[in-house]
């Protein structure tokens, strides 16, 4: 581990932020076109973030402040372990478990900070967010364990590399279709897109965990949200949709996957949190278990292809 690793990590972090924020802006325009509007400028998300950082801010106690820093730090630490098109800032450390545990630091920081604000809406939002996490994580983790069992490695970049060279047919989402469906549905839950956005629900619980954030704190939360989106989409893209052989291919596939999720989410209503949990435990969990049994006992989709 040398200084260059940290420089690469910083570059990944910066590129991830710029790319994802621009993509979010483009997707706000896509959303607007779905609703027959003209939509904002594509760089609107940058303006929003820098505007929020420019404003004043107040504190609700040190837990509130520390939670924001802890969440942003945890998420930034996770981003530098994400392999992008085979490029790793810290080689051989892109383990699925490293990423999921570091991601939890960010999630818990956010929960702590929101609960520290003392607002009841924030507590409701946090409890819903963590319930949502429990709901989507169980089926997703079963599918990811199936992948790890099938390929004998937990390295994200190695699993991505194994899918390349065969075109679309090599993707895990095609080799293991049920697992692919589970991962795609879980991505909605991870990103907090409709129908699984009950924890931010602006009209019901006044944007949930974000309710007491204003100014600079809110700006940090927006940056955090962009980076978290990058982690989640990258993880699903590398594990199930073949990653990318070059940066360009990776970026295009990433943009298509994220835009597809956004388009589908825009025509969805919102589940209540108990409905979301029931849904995840009824459909994707069954799919995930069937997929696991198929891979373990029949071995379909692991090496038997063509």
């Amino acid at each position: 581990m040398t200084v260059m690793n940290f420089v690469y990590g910083f570059i990944v972090l910066l590129a991830a932020f710029i790319f994802q924020t621009a993509l979010t802006g483009v997707n706000r325009k896509v959303t607007a076109r779905i609703q027959k509007r003209y939509g904002p400028r594509w760089y609107q998300q940058f303006l929003d973030i820098f505007k929020a950082l420019r404003k004043g801010s107040i504190t609700h106690g040190w837990v509130f402040d520390f939670g924001v820093i802890m969440a942003l730090g945890g998420i930034m630490a996770t981003v530098i372990f994400i392999p992008v098109a085979g490029f790793e800032a810290f080689p051989n450390m892109d383990n699925v478990f490293v990423i999921s545990y570091l991601l939890a630091v960010g999630m818990l920081g956010m929960a702590m900070s929101a609960a520290g604000s003392g607002n009841p809406w924030a507590s409701i939002g946090v409890s819903r967010a963590l319930t949502n996490m429990v709901a989507y994580d169980v089926p997703l983790m079963i599918v990811i364990f199936t992948l790890i069992f099938a390929f004998d490695t937990a390295s994200v970049s190695e699993i991505a590399a194994m899918q390349q060279g065969m075109g679309v047919l090599g993707w895990n989402a095609v080799r293991m279709p049920l697992g692919g469906i589970v991962a795609f549905i879980a991505l909605f839950g991870m990103l907090g897109k409709k129908p699984f956005d009950s924890f931010i629900a602006p009209a019901e619980i006044a944007s949930g965990p974000m309710v007491e954030y204003g100014g600079k704190h809110l700006g940090f939360m927006f940056i955090l949200h962009e980076l978290m989106t990058f982690i989640e989409v990258s993880l699903i893209l590398s594990l199930f949709f073949g990653g990318g052989s070059s940066i360009l291919v990776y970026a295009i596939k990433y943009a298509i996957l994220y835009t597809l999720v956004n388009i589908i989410s825009q025509v969805m209503p919102r589940f209540k949190i108990d409905q979301a949990v029931k849904f995840f435990y009824r459909v994707p969990l069954v799919f995930a278990i069937i997929q696991g049994l198929v891979v373990i006992f029949l071995g379909w989709g692991v090496s038997v292809w063509f």
Partner: peptide
């Protein structure tokens, strides 16, 4: 379509300009 001008509704006074 006020979002053309970069405007949007927010849920709480803390977030709003």
């Amino acid at each position: 379509d006020m979002e053309r001008l970069g405007m949007g509704p927010m849920a709480t006074p803390r977030q709003a300009d």
